[in-house]
Simulated assay, not measured.
Amino acid sequence: MVAGDRDQSLMSGRGPDWFTDAYTHSPGATHLLTLFGAEHSPGGIPNWEAAETTDENPERVAVLQRLTAAYLRSALNPSDTSWKRASCALADAGSAIGRIDSK
């Protein structure tokens, strides 16, 4: 799961924690990447013809790209250690860019 700590939704008045419910309440979601200062569309493409984003911070976009690729590599190949290395690198950097919670 990925969430920004400044996520807002027109579907809920709860604020950013609404986006973390799938991690909090689902037994299947084992990791939550929280990007600090990020909104709901950090440099992504929300649909086929759209190019807009609510967050164009290049560092957050790069971290999201690296961690997503590392997670997918490790999820598809259990012997791949990309996710462990990438998540440790984020934690070791003491970065103000985000954090990973795991359960």
Rank of each mutant, 00 (worst) to 15 (best):
D7I: 01
V61T: 07
R60T: 01
I45M: 00
G94L: 13
T34V: 15
T24I: 13
A69N: 09
G94M: 09
Q65H: 12
A69D: 07
P46E: 00
L64D: 00
E59C: 07
L33S: 06
D55T: 01
H31L: 05
F36L: 09
E49C: 05
A62G: 06
T30R: 15
D17N: 10
T20E: 04
H25V: 11
D55S: 04
N47R: 09
S9Q: 04
L35T: 02
S79Q: 15
H25E: 14
T30K: 15
R66E: 12
T53R: 11
S9M: 07
L90K: 04
R14Y: 12
Q65A: 15
T53W: 02
T20R: 10
L10R: 14
L64V: 04
W48G: 00
L72R: 11
K84T: 12
M1C: 11
S87H: 07
E39M: 08
G44V: 03
D21F: 11
P16R: 14
R73P: 01
L67V: 06
H25K: 14
D101P: 05
S41W: 01
S82Q: 05
L90V: 03
S87D: 05
Y23G: 05
A75K: 06
A96W: 09
Q65G: 10
S12I: 09
K84S: 09
D92S: 11
G28I: 10
I97H: 06
T20N: 03
T53L: 07
I100F: 05
T30G: 11
L72M: 13
I45N: 00
G28H: 13
T34N: 01
L32Y: 06
S79I: 15
R14P: 01
D17H: 12
G44M: 03
D80I: 05
Q8H: 12
A22C: 08
K84M: 04
T68C: 10
S26A: 09
K103E: 06
P78H: 06
T68W: 07
L10S: 10
M11S: 13
I45K: 00
W48Q: 00
D92G: 07
V63I: 12
P42W: 02
L72P: 02
G44P: 01
G98E: 03
R66Y: 04
